[in-house]
């Protein structure tokens, strides 16, 4: 970038970042607060992290969340990748536009509506609400994110690679597994990470579709906060932020490495 830092530039950057990150930074700082009172600083301490790990109900919720996120991300990745492949490859099948629109609709659908409609469905088919309903709901909404990520990679994928594999003796499915999948794998992984973090974060859809015994961490935090913010909650949130940030950074790095490789080929 050319040009020097003018005062105007510096001010806008500082304000911009402050706007984005000040609340988060405050939360992280207060998670290390000695005091029970959230807004009064009484010295550095990690005791709330210790408390946290003795709090059974929060640990349970965390375990539920991780399991939901892992299963839903994995299933969504498989389904999303398949959807992306068919969207990119079969350009001429009947109803393609409709199918494309339907895969992407949940991206812009308000979560409340997704949650409510899923709830209605589960009630209608008399599906006992709990762990599996949350997981299914998360698969539904994260599938389209995976499809978008994988599709953007597949568009630039040279189809003759797969044809070359077939030409050298691979049946079509093997050609996909041996050539296409390894080449687009970074995109599949970043799709999985995106799905995982989305599931980890979700409160609205989980609240609608969850049942007794399947409280996720965001739900737990939300219900606790209604009784007052404790430093314990700050500690949980700090850990969550850490996990999500790591995930996002890894996904970005994978994408960047892929882009660099594409440039070189």
């Amino acid at each position: 970038m050319s040009g020097r830092w003018s005062w105007f530039n510096i001010t806008s950057v500082v304000f911009g970042f402050a706007f984005l990150y000040l609340p988060i930074v405050l939360l992280v700082i207060y998670s290390f607060n000695e005091s029970r009172l959230v807004t009064v600083w009484a010295g550095f301490s990690t005791k709330w992290y210790g408390e946290l790990f003795r709090n059974e109900s929060i640990l349970d919720a965390a375990w539920v969340t991780v399991r939901v996120a892992f299963i839903s991300a994995s299933v969504a990745t498989v389904l999303g990748t398949l959807a992306a492949v068919s969207l990119v490859r079969f350009t001429r099948f009947r109803g393609r536009t409709l199918f494309t629109g339907m895969v992407y609709a949940p991206l812009v659908m308000p979560e409340v509506i997704t949650g409510l409609s899923l709830l209605l469905l589960f009630v209608a088919i008399d599906f006992a609400r709990g762990f599996w309903t949350v997981t299914l709901a998360h698969i539904t909404f994260s599938l389209c994110f995976v499809a978008v990520v994988v599709q953007s990679r597949l568009v630039s994928f040279d189809k003759s690679l797969e044809e070359a594999a077939q030409d050298l003796g691979c049946p079509p499915f093997q050609a996909f597994m041996k050539v296409t999948l390894p080449v687009i794998f970074p995109a599949v992984i970043s799709g999985w990470m995106l799905a995982f973090t989305l599931s980890l974060d979700d409160l609205v859809i989980a609240s609608f579709t969850s049942g007794p015994g399947a409280t996720t961490l965001p739900m737990k935090i939300y219900s606790q906060v209604r009784l007052g913010v404790t430093p314990e909650i700050n500690a949980v949130c700090t850990i969550l932020i850490g996990i999500v940030t790591t995930g996002v950074i890894i996904a970005a790095l994978l994408n960047k490495r892929r882009a660099m490789q594409d440039d070189r080929v």
């Binding site: 003759s160 690679l161 044809e163 070359a164 594999a165 030409d167 050298l168 003796g169 691979c170 080449v183």
Partner: peptide, 17 residues
């Protein structure tokens, strides 16, 4: 294609990256 005794060299070379 995988059962034909024919091999093809592609315009883009199609090397497996």
């Amino acid at each position: 294609p995988h059962k034909r005794p024919v091999n093809m060299m592609f315009q883009s070379y199609a090397l497996f990256p």
